[in-house]
């Protein structure tokens, strides 16, 4: 059995091993209630990573997700009183527009995606600071419960957050595997030049991929904002690294083309288990970033498809 053959199975094997290790060391990890709350805590991150998957799947990256979510936390908090549940629509629209603009800048203006999304992230940050007046804002509890209280209920013991995450996963999975757009994504991710040559409108596919990434980041921001009952231009800071890690340890390589949204679900669970393990091992929260940075390097090195880099790694 060669390494290349087991490579696609690597993510879930990793997850299984990690779960077993943590479970053996700390049997209370398997406590259903605790497990359920761990999973629902990771929902905003998961949704963000889900969107990021599309950007990475086509071989790009979206560094604006964190700022996008920040902006949406502010939008949601500021406009909750005026529009009620309608802020969800505004949030999604904002995500779509900013994401699509990043995509436009990347494809039509030939700016590499890590620069265009980084720059758009700062535009979003600017907007967030403007809207929030550079203060931490809080939601009115009654208004919040009236519009978004349903997000945090439980039906038959299942947190609604988890249901939202699963519905979004299903939508993303449907998009990726059952639509022509999904096939086009795969074509672009596997070999952009070939996709162009076969007459695909590659620019449109890529712009849409970035727009989807923006939309999911916006939804993540919305849920995060409702969860913390507030908004702030720095609220979602720290999510970017974890979102990239979740996508990559899930097995969607930076070079794109393979992996996908289900992999990202596994990747997010791996991130969750690592975090739980760190809490159990009493590793300080301040060390998390270092640990995940190293995990990230390892994940990239293991998954990246070097044949696609055509000899030159810039």
């Amino acid at each position: 059995m060669s390494f290349e053959r087991i490579k696609p199975h690597f993510p879930w094997i990793t997850l299984l091993v990690l779960v077993l290790l943590v479970g053996i060391a700390n049997p209370s990890f398997f406590d259903p209630a605790g497990l359920l709350s761990l999973v629902s805590d990771v929902v905003p991150l998961f949704i963000m990573a889900l969107g990021m998957t599309f950007a990475i799947y086509i071989g790009g990256i979206d560094l604006s997700v964190q700022q996008m979510a920040n902006l949406v936390t502010v939008i949601a908090t500021v406009y909750l009183a005026n529009f009620g549940i309608g802020v969800a629509l505004i949030a999604v629209a904002a995500g779509f527009i900013i994401g699509a603009f990043s995509g436009f800048v990347t494809t039509r203006l030939y700016v590499p995606s890590f620069v265009s999304t980084l720059a758009m992230g700062f535009v979003a940050l600017s907007a967030a600071k403007y809207l929030s007046g550079q203060r931490a804002l809080y939601m009115d509890a009654e208004l919040r419960d009236a519009s978004f209280g349903w997000m945090f209920g439980r039906t038959a013991g299942v947190p609604h957050e988890l249901v939202i995450a699963l519905v979004l996963l299903a939508i993303a999975w449907f998009l990726q595997t059952r639509t022509t757009f999904g096939r086009a994504l795969k074509a672009v991710g596997s070999g952009e030049l070939a996709a162009v040559a076969s007459g695909l409108n590659v620019d449109r596919v890529k712009i849409l991929a970035f727009a989807i990434s923006g939309v999911f980041a916006a939804i993540a921001g919305l849920i995060f904002s409702v969860k913390l009952s507030g908004g702030d231009a720095n609220l979602a800071n720290g999510f970017l690294l974890l979102a990239i890690v979740a996508v990559l340890v899930g097995g969607t390589p930076l070079t794109g083309g393979v992996g996908g949204v289900v992999n990202t679900a596994i990747g997010t669970l791996i991130v969750m288990v690592i975090r739980a393990a760190m809490v159990y091992l009493e590793i300080d929260a301040t060390q998390q970033q270092m640990v995940f940075g190293i995990v990230l390097i390892a994940a990239i090195a293991l998954t990246i498809d070097r044949s696609k880099l055509r000899g030159v790694v810039k």
Binding site: P112, L254, I297, I300, A301, I304, R306, L309, V313
Partner: peptide, 8 residues
Amino acid sequence: LKIPSFMA
């Protein structure tokens, strides 16, 4: 490790 520099 042949990782693109922006990511590394």
